[in-house]
């Protein structure tokens, strides 16, 4: 079971209670939440917030692929996964992503949670523009998906 969604920051916030509600409907006992937030310092610069951009259709496609792959590569067939990523401006300390996983056993849940966030970082088309105290902003460097 997978829930995957992009949350527009101008309209809503990412909320852990939605993940709790979704995962509690599964039959699995080992539940882990990974929450990514906007940090206030990066490269010795004071960060005031991040604007997230995304290619939405590809993001959702990649979440589905990662979910499916996790079943095959990690051999975790029985699982529930909740992924929400924000799009738009997010101030420091606010949430940018929640990955909630529910599995039968804790070892699988830890592995799966880690696998999903690492894959999202490597292949999901999301971009960050950091905003600084001096009112400047900068698109952050990332990983090329070029073939």
């Amino acid at each position: 079971m997978l829930h995957a969604k992009i949350i527009y920051s101008s309209k809503a916030k990412i909320q852990i209670k939605k993940a709790e509600s979704f995962l509690s409907s599964s039959k699995f006992g080992a539940i882990i939440y990974f929450i990514g937030t906007v940090r206030s310092f990066n490269d010795n610069k004071k960060v005031t917030g991040i604007t997230y951009d995304s290619k939405d259709t590809m993001v959702l496609k990649s979440f589905k692929e990662i979910y499916k792959e996790a079943g095959n590569k990690l051999k975790i067939k029985r699982k529930s996964v909740f992924i929400e990523h924000v799009k738009g401006y997010v101030p420091t300390k606010a949430k940018s992503i929640i990955i909630g996983v529910a599995c039968e056993h804790r070892n699988e849940a830890y592995k799966l949670s880690r696998y999903i966030i690492e894959q999202v970082k490597k292949r999901t088309p999301i971009w960050k523009k950091e905003h600084y105290g001096n009112k400047k902003s900068l698109w952050l460097k990332g990983i090329s998906l070029k073939k």
Binding site: G36, Y52, S54, K55, T57, M58, K61, H85, S96, I97, I117, V120, K121, R123, T124, P125, I126, W127, K128, W139, L140, K141, G142, I143, S144, L145, K146, K147
Partner: peptide
């Protein structure tokens, strides 16, 4: 929504996207 190679031929009226290096999360 597939990443394509440089020799990919674009169809008439096809809308393509440019995907700069990524880094979400």
């Amino acid at each position: 929504d597939n990443i394509v190679k440089e020799n990919y031929i674009i169809s008439k009226n096809e809308v393509i996207g440019i995907i700069p290096p990524i880094g979400g999360g």
